[in-house]
Computed example of a mutant assay.
Amino acid sequence: MTAGFSGQTPARARPKKKSRRGKFLVITVIVLGVLLVAADFALAAAGEYQIAQRMREKLQLDEDPSVRINGFPFTLQALRGDYQHVEIRAYGVPIKDEQQGVDLRDLDVEADLLHTRVELSDLLAGNVSKATIDTVKGSVRIKAMDLNRLANQVTPFDKLSIEPDNRVTTTPPADPQAPKTTAAIKLSGQTNVAGRNVTITAYGQIALASGAIQITIDDIELDDTSLKQIIPQLRQALAIKIDPGTLPFGATPTAVEVESGAFKLSGEITDVPLEQR
């Protein structure tokens, strides 16, 4: 008798179903995260708008400046009532004060507000009468357009450009953190002498003088060497003092720089009110 072998085929394991509940939770968390981020940005935008309104009055601008509240999340700063870094930028700003002799038409004005302290409810309501700022770092840039106009009051110049004088090597200061009160400059442009266009390149420096920029020219190069006799006249014409008035929030200028296309005056002030007084 032949013995037969009988075996049972093992049943296939059923594939585990993905947890619908887990999937739903993940989607819910993502949606909530997106909504919270969107709400945070919307709240920040509302705060920036109110600060822009106040800065328009404070800086006496014709238009609202650009305002950015840095740091994320904004809501955490708002709950603390301490906004760590607020950037304010305004470009092409005209400043005219006949009593002070200030007449500039194309300034770039910048202010960095460090630790602006105001309650969120007051900020959103536009009530910043109690708001204070720990430190304001302010600056203005005086561009070539205003330099041309001021120089033309003495001698007609055309297309004057501003550049740092990279030929000059300066000895590192004893205190690297100390503000720089002088900087080497290179001015280039054209002028007209007896009906002849002359290209000039002038080298010198700018220095901080009673809150203004004083230009001193040491050397002038002409493309026509036969006109060397006009160099003293050109040097005098470019010895210009440019006074932009006070910096944002009344900060006193303490440093000067030469950038491509502009002179920059900067300074800082501490413990100042946000509201116009």
Rank of each mutant, 00 (worst) to 15 (best):
D64F: 11
T75W: 06
Y49M: 02
L25V: 15
L76S: 11
E48G: 13
K58L: 11
R54L: 07
F72Y: 06
M55W: 01
S66H: 14
E48R: 06
Q53E: 10
T75G: 02
I88L: 13
V67Q: 04
Y83D: 01
T75P: 03
I27W: 00
L43A: 12
D40H: 01
Q77L: 14
Q53K: 10
Q60N: 15
F41N: 00
L35A: 13
D62G: 15
D82F: 12
R56F: 02
E57K: 12
G22Q: 11
E48D: 14
Q77V: 13
Y49T: 03
Y49W: 13
I51W: 07
L25F: 03
F74L: 09
M55G: 03
A45G: 08
F72E: 05
D40C: 01
A42H: 01
L32Y: 00
Q53S: 07
I30D: 00
L32F: 00
F24E: 11
A52I: 06
S66Y: 14
R56Y: 05
A45H: 11
Y49K: 11
M55P: 04
A78E: 05
R80E: 15
L25N: 05
A45L: 13
F72L: 08
L61V: 07
E87F: 08
G71H: 12
D82N: 13
M55T: 06
A78W: 06
L36H: 03
L79A: 06
R68I: 09
H85C: 03
Q60H: 14
A42I: 04
L76F: 12
G47S: 02
A42V: 04
G22Y: 09
R21V: 14
